[in-house]
Design a protein around this nucleic acid. Structure first.
Length: 504
RNA sequence: GCGGGAAUAGCUCAGUGGUAGAGCCUCACGUUGCCAACGUGAUUGUCGCGGGUUCAAGUCCCGUUUCCCGCUCCA
């Protein structure tokens, strides 16, 4: 009975997330994505890209790079992952990229402060606050707490405000018992948990030589703003683009590649005159969502999520996410922000070096505004992979096919001899050799032809070239299309140009 | 971080204390002439990891890791 119920629950959950599980399974089987350090039990939230995965990822990055930098007004760069620690003070990451945490001294459990509040029901909260007020009666802490209680907000928000106020937080904590072991008065003082990975430069592990693994590539662009501008003789407006890994010590990882501690970003920071910020914010917003659509991502699974003004980050004047409808819900795959002059001003302040741009026309120095487009390469990878996944019934069999845009497909063409004799393999091998310098191809002569087609469907290969009996007499081959499964004949001499045309 | 579930062959999963299995995949040979065909054979496992109970543990107990779901988080 119990087991039966378990099975039903498992099935329901399985159904809800069926697609992700199937894709994860396919990803492993066909060599797109493996779990990191799998033979040692895996490492939480880390994934490796296999032979097909690395091709897909590379193609996504290449398409992005071409789209973003093969234009007059955008330059590329590649900044190092380790940067001067002051960069992260200027950016606000040392101060703000944190969550306050407490530990239970009894059972050693760790809680984030705001989560601790969530675990307590309203009646208990009333009680805790009451006994807390009793304790601090007459002190200035009491008036502070009373002023919070007087606010016209729900009880849980009042509680949270008290809990997160550094002056009274620890006193309130003394009245809360540990949700894990139930011990009273056992919490440490709240301390901040920084989401940046720390490491040390040089052999000595001391406070003096801490450096961080960058939590975003953006800062590497900001600090090089004038270097790039001068070297490339660019004038406003212009952008700097970079693709690279970034690291965040997330408390939780989740949903396959969606939230990981190591991920790759594709960022372009566009520097504009302050009065042009709205214009270019709109321009890049449209340009970026079009990019995803142009590579075949379902338009009905893409949307903007504009951030409400009151929820904007400290640096932003405007912000939107491009979201993709994953099987687990809408998720951000790219952020477009108007970062104003915050970043350049801060770096000017912290470095003591001018970050200003000299405008020849008006003869004045200005601090440009920055329009940021920040796409997740890993998240895009997952979105493209899931979006491409399809199952269909063909002759009472399930056909699994990855409908990648041809430019993203890991393998561009597969070449088969219809049967493995009568000169067909030789001809097929020659075609393979002719195509290989121009695209990633795959040769297969094993098993039935239908099976070989289906194998390529699963890898997302858009075209299969088959050498058959007719080839030997008239030098034509069949081209079989992945999506329609239809075939047409083409002369071998025209094959290369024909395929290249498809990938343009 | 809390709560719930899961972990057995490359994949999907069966196996309620007594010899570790099936289907698919992969590989070889034969057959085959355009959509996961057929035949024969072969490879593949410290049953996630570590303890404990037991004559005996994939199975029971404890711990742990990883994945999934919900909450939470996502400056």
């Amino acid at each position: 009975m119990k087991k039966q119920r378990r099975c039903i629950i498992a099935k329901q959950k399985n159904q809800r997330n069926e697609i992700v599980e199937k894709v994860v399974s396919l990803a492993k089987r066909r060599g797109f994505v493996f779990q990191s350090s799998e033979i040692y039990g895996g490492l939480n939230g880390c994934w490796d890209y296999g032979p097909l995965g690395v091709e897909l990822l590379k193609n996504i990055k290449e398409e992005w790079w071409k789209f973003m930098t093969y234009r007059e007004d955008v330059e590329g760069q590649d900044a190092s992952i380790l940067m001067h620690p002051r960069v992260w003070e200027a950016s606000g990451h040392v101060e703000n990229f944190t969550d306050p945490m407490v530990d239970c001294k009894q059972c050693k459990s760790r809680f984030r402060l705001d989560v601790l509040g969530e675990a307590i029901n309203d009646a208990k909260k009333e009680k805790i606050i009451a006994s807390f007020i009793e304790e601090v009666k007459g002190s200035e802490k009491e008036s502070l707490v009373m002023s919070i209680i007087a606010l016209d907000i729900p009880l849980n928000e009042k509680f949270e405000k008290i809990l997160e106020n550094s002056k009274v937080s620890f006193d309130l904590l003394a009245h809360i018992s540990c949700p894990n072991c139930g011990t009273n008065n056992s919490f440490t003082e709240p301390r901040k948990f920084n989401l940046m990975f720390k490491t040390f430069v040089g052999p000595v592990e001391s406070e003096d030589n801490i450096v961080y693994l960058r939590p975003e590539t953006a800062q590497g662009i900001f600090v090089n703003f004038l270097n790039v501008q001068v070297a490339s003789r660019q004038k406003l407006p212009f952008g700097i683009a970079q693709i690279g890994k970034a690291f965040r010590n997330e408390i939780n990882t989740k949903n396959f590649l969606f939230r990981t501690r190591e991920f790759e970003q594709m960022e372009m920071q566009y520097f504009v005159k302050p009065e042009d910020d709205v214009k270019f914010y709109k321009y890049w917003k449209e340009a970026r969502i079009e990019w995803f659509k142009s590579l075949g991502m379902s338009p009905d699974k893409l949307r903007f999520h504009d951030h409400p003004k009151e929820k904007l980050a400290h640096y932003a004047k405007d912000a939107t996410d491009i979201e993709y409808l994953f099987p687990f819900g809408w998720g951000e795959i790219e952020g477009i922000h108007n970062r104003t002059d915050f970043d350049l001003s801060r770096h000017e302040e912290y470095s003591g070096k001018s970050m200003k741009y000299f405008d020849e026309e008006t003869r004045e120095k200005i601090t440009p505004y920055i329009i940021e487009t920040s796409a997740g390469a890993s998240r895009s990878f997952m979105a493209f992979l899931i979006d491409a996944y399809e199952e269909e019934e063909v002759n009472d069999e399930t056909r699994v096919v990855l409908r990648f845009h041809p430019r993203l497909a890991p393998i561009k063409a597969a070449i088969f001899p219809l049967v493995n004799r009568d000169g067909m393999p030789e001809t097929a091998r020659k075609i393979e050799a002719d195509l290989r310098p121009f695209m990633r191809v795959f040769y297969d002569s094993k098993g039935a032809i239908g099976r070989r087609y289906r194998r390529q469907d699963e890898a997302g290969t858009p075209y299969c070239i088959t050498v058959d009996t007719q080839t030997l007499s008239d030098n034509t081959v069949t081209v079989r299309e992945r999506d329609s499964m239809e075939q047409y004949r083409i002369e071998i001499d025209k094959l290369l140009m024909h395929l290249l045309e498809k990938f343009r």
